[in-house]
Amino acid sequence: MTTPTRAAMKGRGVAKRSEAVKREERTGWTFMVPFCLLFLIVFVVPIIWAIYQSFFQQVATGGGAYGGGTLENKFVGLANFQYVITSKAFWSGIGRVFIYTVIQVPLMIILALALAMLMDSFIVKHVSGFRLLYFLPYAIPGVVASIIWVFLYNQQISPIVKFCELFGLHPDFFANNVVIGSMANITTWTFTGYNMLIFLAALQAIPHDLYEAARIDGANGWQIAMKIKLPNVRGAALLAMLLSIVGTIQLFNEPQVMQTADPGISDSFTPMMMALNTSRGSLTPKGDGPASAIAIVMALIAGVLAATYALVERKVNES
């Protein structure tokens, strides 16, 4: 079978052919439209709206010194961005999230990878029960998980604290420099099983002849894990890492819930909390303008981080 060249097609039924192409195009778009429409409403329009809003601030006009009057959108140029970029609270929030990401993401990925490797190592046979129970926390909403852990961190009721006291330890999970670790633990608890299952799926896709060949060549279990399994799940691990980094940038549920038990957690503890509380008016300057500016700067930082990560990953891959 030879494919007809363009010239040959011109001779016969060019009209018919282009009719078919047009129809295919129409059908394809028809199936695309519902998703695209929703995508526009949920993703594209809000992004444009946020950019537009970030140049405005709501100010009261016509009122006296004690407010009153009506709120009016006033164009303020880049003032909102200037506020965000010079805001100490914003950068401390970014700093906290950065520390959180640097500690929590690698720890979780390594833990998930290690568990997946152990389960795939044939050392233990009946792993499906373990697998299901490791995954269970993923089914528990972040808010509920945070509530449970906040109670488990509580001095009066926590069996963990009581257990530590047997050994003369008095852990304070809400102490200033510990609280980020306590939060990171909640996230790790929720998502390790999920990542482990992704890695397990990748491991199980490796053809088993490879292992036997390696055995014949005299490799031991450890060598097989490091030289065959690890390289084969690298892609999945790097992707999981990237998605986890994007996830932790928007850190919100855990600190928001922990705030109910620890007044030391401020309204701007993470940038996401700061954006919410700015938009709701419990931080000044308030309103959608400054909140949008916070969101945009965060998105830019996230983009730079993700791009840097992807670049470094490619460099490492090449070498």
Partner: peptide
Amino acid sequence: FRFRGKGVIIGVIMASMLMPAALLTIP
């Protein structure tokens, strides 16, 4: 199906997977 703009659409949707979605909640 083949249709014009397909590549761009796929690219945009895939890129949006990396978007911190919570940020969209405010706008």
